[in-house]
Nucleic acid binder design. Structure first.
Lengths: 128, 128, 128, 128
DNA sequence: GTGGTCTAGACCACA
DNA sequence: GTGGTCTAGACCACA
């Protein structure tokens, strides 16, 4: 897992996003046990409290569940995960088009620009 | 201009983004005088300090310039504006693809999903 | 006996409550031998340590006693059990009224609401 | 506000309950500003972090909202508050009857016992 | 002044 | 070993 944090949004939210992606994309599968809070804190060089906060977000969304004294596990509900993955993707699509639109790009122009791919992936980018 | 603010990021940055879009998309044209700080504060129902901070951001980016006693004006350099518009768009593209990728969507899948457009624009979306 | 545990309070305490109810309500009668620790652990799908801890709670309260090598027995003192049952019930009553009161319900209103019974038994309920 | 905490459940949850009661019972009315986090921490002799955690619970339930830099306010939605008050009350009723039932008291017996009121309000009581 | 984040670190209740 | 709570205290971004 690649834990690199920007400083334009709280670390715990960025971590939640990273872990959420790992779950919905199948890096962690339903029923899998996540690394422990302490372990994640070491890996990400953050404080265990921060990791906890991130994991709470995922639990609130119904992606993981806590079994006291044995760890945090990816929920078994496979459907929910697929749904969540699409939800997020749809949200990203909508957000992308909306921002492009406020720059004066139509839907078609946005798609065309994206398809061309003549841009630098490291370009200055709004926080997300 | 539509001033609607979320609660999860600083108002002044959100306002800077809105004004920046208005400028690069041509709502305000090169050489135009922007509404006064007071006027913008009224329109957006914010504190003049907040408006000032937003405008400072735009000045820092070279999109507007202050002419003492007479106000803030959109820079004359048309090329610079176009360039800035593309820069932002490229950044949005790169960011979009990167996030889709972390969800396990390839470039092609992302484009396809975007093209299909079968999603609700109000879907759950990461804060911006 | 129905062993279902929530995730928000220690299993051993929840088990102690369940067993206590079983005793004071007469499921286990004075002089009865309780199922063995191992047996209870199997039934409740918990660790024998957890069962032991629960039983210790009951012993502390004077509801059961250990006879070396032959098991745990419900105390013979019938009076004590009845008294304990009432104690618990009174405590529940007092607690209920106190919480209703902090919601702004008078004693009469609380009784009325309870008597009406127009509520869903599965409604959101504070952890117990 | 009377902040007295037991040690059988987390302080932040007890505080959330206390504040929730204060809101749904009208001590704080829709639109009212709550005391600041720091102020509540002083009053309750706890850490501001703990207060924050409690208030987050209320925000998650939709009872209060945060206005950055100016404070936390009781939501204006009056209906929601009334509904929440009844929800809680119903939950308390259901929980009370369920526990009485596991002690072997029928609904009628429970009501009768409650109506008699011959009990000590300070009696030993299960944690809630 | 307001709330939010983060850390270091202690301590607890488990299994 | 596991997660959860809580504190003290620093620091930040506002308005």
């Amino acid at each position: 897992m690649n834990f690199e944090f920007q400083n334009n949004s709280p670390v715990y939210l960025q971590m939640a996003d990273i872990l959420e992606s790992a779950i919905v994309s199948g890096t962690f599968k339903p029923g899998d046990r996540l690394p422990s809070v302490r372990e994640l804190a070491l890996q990400s060089r953050t404080n265990p409290n921060t990791v906890s906060k991130a994991l709470n977000e995922l639990e609130r969304k119904g992606l993981i569940e806590t079994r006291r004294t044995s760890g945090k596990f990816v929920c078994l509900n496979d459907e929910a995960l697929k749904k969540q993955r699409l939800e997020i993707a749809y949200g990203l699509c909508a957000g992308f088009l909306k921002e492009m639109s406020s720059l004066g790009f139509s839907r078609e122009e946005s798609l065309a620009l994206l398809a061309r791919g003549e841009y630098d992936a490291n370009a200055d980018r709004k926080p997300e």
